[in-house]
Design a binder for these strands. Structure first.
Length: 299
DNA sequence: CAACAATCACAACTTATCGT
DNA sequence: ACGATAAGTTGTGATTGTTG
């Protein structure tokens, strides 16, 4: 097998025109260099050096190899320095795929902090439904995925999980606003907005409906979390949202949120997911750390 | 003879391949 | 999944052969 160290040996010999001197500068025995050169010549099927009593001289074949060896050594220096840059987070891109709810609060904050620490690393952000986030991760079109109740897939690994109950979000003056918790069946009377079926939220609500033998007719179906938030805030009715989508609105008292009591909604999770077995790029590792911290603060 | 490369025997490691 | 063992690699130092 052709090894980089062979090329290093060859290059040293070509430069010093001497196996002995090359060995000296490489801090190995002369015999070791001699043998590597011989192996290289056997591998290529042609002598690379003419042997002379005072050293060696490149053959025509040797000249050709020397030309590329030099380029390779130079490239190697470059590669090393670029990788050093990457390690020091002086370059690179982090690709993230998230459900829309992640855009409202958590990701802007994490991106702000991350950008402050690593200004030279850029961020690419995609928005999908929970299923779409999983698919994007499986295709390696993103390094990290943020999803709510992501559908299970054997090749996807949840590297962080934060319990995230599903809430009935309403305007502060809504009839249910003060309640400790509500069951889905109690909300039947109110106008309801739901995201479409590609959302983890919708999957959950549908599960509840099924086990509770309910049939809810939403007055609004949308692919926009932002729209659901507005629906609740403007008092149009009840929207179902996980905490991390409405954290800010609750704090500002623009929305009141009542946790859903029905079982599947109680142990829903926000998850950070990655492609199982995939070695993450260094910037993504760093971003993941930040994102994990932010996720833990979601309560 | 001095300078040099080639070769050999052996040690220390690493890698591949088993059988359990 | 595991350790035992064989098979390569890469190293060293001693030695040999060639030649100006």
């Amino acid at each position: 097998m052709f090894h980089l160290s062979h090329l290093r040996y060859f290059y040293a010999v070509a430069q010093t025109r001497s196996i002995r001197k090359a060995a000296e500068s490489l801090h190995v025995a002369q015999s070791a260099v001699s043998r590597q050169i011989k192996n290289l010549e056997e591998e290529l099927g042609v002598p690379l050096f003419d042997r002379h009593p005072r050293g060696v001289r490149l053959t025509d074949a040797g000249q050709i190899l020397a030309k590329y060896a030099q380029q390779t050594m130079l490239n190697l220096d470059r590669i090393r320095s670029e990788i050093d840059d990457l390690r020091a987070l002086r370059r690179g891109t982090v690709k993230i795929c998230t459900v829309e709810a992640g855009l409202i609060d958590i990701l802007p904050q994490v991106i702000r902090d991350f950008r402050r620490r690593y200004p030279a690393v850029s961020v690419t952000l995609l928005t999908r439904g929970s299923q779409g986030v999983v698919d994007t991760i499986l295709n390696d079109d993103a390094d990290l995925g943020l999803a709510f109740n992501a559908p299970y897939h054997p090749d996807v690994e949840a590297v962080a999980t934060q319990p995230q109950r599903l809430y009935a979000a309403v305007a502060p003056d809504h009839a249910i606003a003060g309640k400790k918790q509500v069951k889905l069946s109690e909300l039947k009377a109110y106008p309801i907005a739901l995201p479409d079926t590609s959302f983890g939220i919708r999957q959950l609500v549908d599960q509840i409906q099924q086990s509770a033998q309910l049939r809810i007719e939403p007055v609004l179906t949308t692919d926009s979390i932002q729209m659901l938030v507005s629906f609740a805030r403007l008092g149009l009715g009840v929207a179902f949202l996980p905490f991390f989508a409405i954290k800010g609105e609750i704090r500002n008292e623009r929305i009141a949120a009542v946790p859903l009591a029905d079982h599947p909604a109680r142990n829903a999770n926000a998850e950070i997911i990655v492609h199982k077995g995939r070695q993450l790029p260094i910037p993504a590792e760093e971003f993941l750390d930040e994102l994990k911290k932010a996720l833990r603060l979601l309560k």
